[in-house]
């Protein structure tokens, strides 16, 4: 039987959650015995090659491209997991949610202390995704099946959750793995 496929992506995140996934160290060898990686920065596959069992989402949605990718993940994955506080709650990027978008653009491209932009033009190349009015946690954009909190969730947390899912067992996260202070 073919191995189930896992896809991962980083939306408005810092890649810290992916780093944490790599932190499972040598267990990654076990992981590739259990699953194949599909679309993911880990193997640099850019487009889905088929249906996936699990999609791991790092980061929330701050721009239109994030939304497109997330919707694509929802379409291709049986189970979507929001990984980390950015995906589950918006996290650090959502700190901009209290500032009007126009001011955010102005700070980034016009008025910021390190900005040099004599033309006073806000970049509008179609390659640059438009920002959303605020940063959304993933479950406000598409249906999310599970949330793994943490910034980032530890390698052990990710490992335990993945193995439990793949072996169809209830996930048992001991207190130490979901305690944050």
């Amino acid at each position: 039987m073919a191995k189930p496929k896992v896809a991962t992506t980083s939306l408005a995140g810092c890649f810290g959650c992916h780093m944490s996934l790599l932190d499972i160290d040598d267990r990654i060898l076990k992981l590739v015995e259990l699953v194949d990686f599909d679309k993911s920065p880990i193997d640099d596959i850019k487009e889905f090659s088929g249906r996936c069992a699990i999609g791991l989402i790092e980061g929330g949605c701050c721009n239109e491209e994030n939304v497109r990718v997330l919707q694509d993940f929802r379409k291709h994955c049986d189970i979507l997991i929001s990984v980390g506080d950015c995906a589950t709650m918006g996290g650090i990027p959502a700190m901009r949610n209290n500032i009007p978008l126009e001011e955010c653009y102005a700070e980034a491209y016009l008025d910021g202390p390190t900005v040099h932009n004599p033309s006073k033009q806000i970049p509008n190349d179609p390659e640059l995704p438009l920002l959303l009015n605020k940063v959304y946690p993933c479950h406000e954009v598409v249906k999310i099946d599970y949330h793994l909190p943490g910034c980032p969730p530890s390698a052990d947390t990710l490992w335990e959750a993945l193995v439990a899912l793949l072996s169809d067992k209830p996930v048992a996260l001991p207190y130490a793995l979901i305690k944050y202070d």
């Binding site: 239109e64 806000i122 179609p126 438009l130 406000e140």
Partner: peptide, 30 residues
């Protein structure tokens, strides 16, 4: 009934309206 697992309450056009005004172009994705 939601379509393709999208949240009915999320309105991408409304979410992009501000940026389209500030940047002065339409979305290429939506």
């Amino acid at each position: 009934k939601p379509i393709d697992g999208k949240q009915l309450s999320f309105d991408i056009h409304q979410a992009l309206a501000d940026a389209q005004t500030v940047v002065g172009r339409q979305s290429v994705h939506f």
